[in-house]
Design a protein around this nucleic acid. Structure first.
Lengths: 165, 165
DNA sequence: GTTGAAGCTCCAGTCACTGGAGCTTTTAGA
DNA sequence: TCTAAAAGCTCCAGTGACTGGAGCTTCAAC
């Protein structure tokens, strides 16, 4: 399974990500370039596997790549101070909290929009009316959903909600 | 203020967005091309202002542009059925709910990471250890933060959390 | 030796904007 | 009427974190 020379596909499966993602991490300097076979194929060992798992876990927690870069650098300096890592995690926690608050108020308004009985013609549709007139929604949710930052922001399709008509 | 020929900057201020954003909406067909002066500058009227406000409000609620396109088309057909708009809003509500659940479990793990007392050397740091070993976090939050889809995904900087080191 | 899976590089696309270069038009004041 | 600053214009490139494809080569099992 994990002797010292795993091909990229196997590493990808073991980390639960795509082959291209690994090559991308190498390209942007998150993963060090691995050894290559005579035919120039990548071969990975334990160290790479651990590093990749670290990265993927951090991504699942919403850390952006620059933060992960910092965390990786810190984890390589076993003797240095822990405060940096704490600070990064704390910032991320704040970002997550902000995001939850925004989404919660968005949910409230979406629910209000949907809760109102409606005629079955567009002209009486509460959803359309609410969107057209900000005054109809109870209050501010300005600058809400559109500002992510500090959470992952990919356009993958684990669920197909929206986008396709 | 809003006679029949507002320049783009004024429209942008009135909608709380950037000039470029308006031109972008026109480019992708969300806003119809406005009248132009002899010198080819855009001039907007009431109808544009309303449509732009509709778009911005929907964006704040996290609707992606393709969904907004649909909603705009619906709102132009005053006599047609309301079910479409309801369905779109309901999908968006589901997406928001999924997102909240994910973020809530992420928050829990970040809090656990931070709550543990830690030595002040990296080698004893709980944050780093947790990231390195998925087994240390109580359980699954797979496919969590990284999958947005259905909420806005911009990289604007209303807050500077993360990204800068 | 053959074949099919998996690998390679390079490039373009995603989403919803944002920023800049290098120009022209408008508008207010002198 | 002239001037200067502000605002407009078009076109293009960049953001984050991947993802997908074309067109090729290498590997591993039979």
């Amino acid at each position: 399974m994990s002797d010292a020379s795993m091909p990229i596909g196997q590493l990808a499966r073991s980390a639960g990500c795509k082959v291209q993602t690994i090559r991308y991490y190498e390209q942007v300097g998150l993963l060090p370039p691995p050894a290559r076979t005579a035919g120039a194929q990548r071969r990975y060992g334990e160290a790479h596997q651990q590093k990749l798992r670290f990265i993927r876990h951090a991504r699942e927690l919403g850390f952006p790549l620059p933060a992960i870069r910092e965390l990786l650098a810190l984890s390589d300096q076993q003797e240095s101070d822990c405060a940096g890592a704490d600070r990064i995690a704390r910032r991320q926690l704040e970002a997550v909290n902000r995001r939850i608050m925004m989404l919660t108020s968005l949910r409230a308004e979406l629910e209000r929009m949907l809760a109102h009985g409606h005629g079955n013609r567009i002209r009486d549709c509460r959803v359309i009316a609410t969107l057209a007139d900000h005054g109809l929604c109870s209050h501010e949710h300005h600058e809400a959903a559109a500002s992510s930052r500090g959470d992952g922001c990919t356009a993958r399709g684990d669920d197909e909600a929206m986008t396709r008509r």
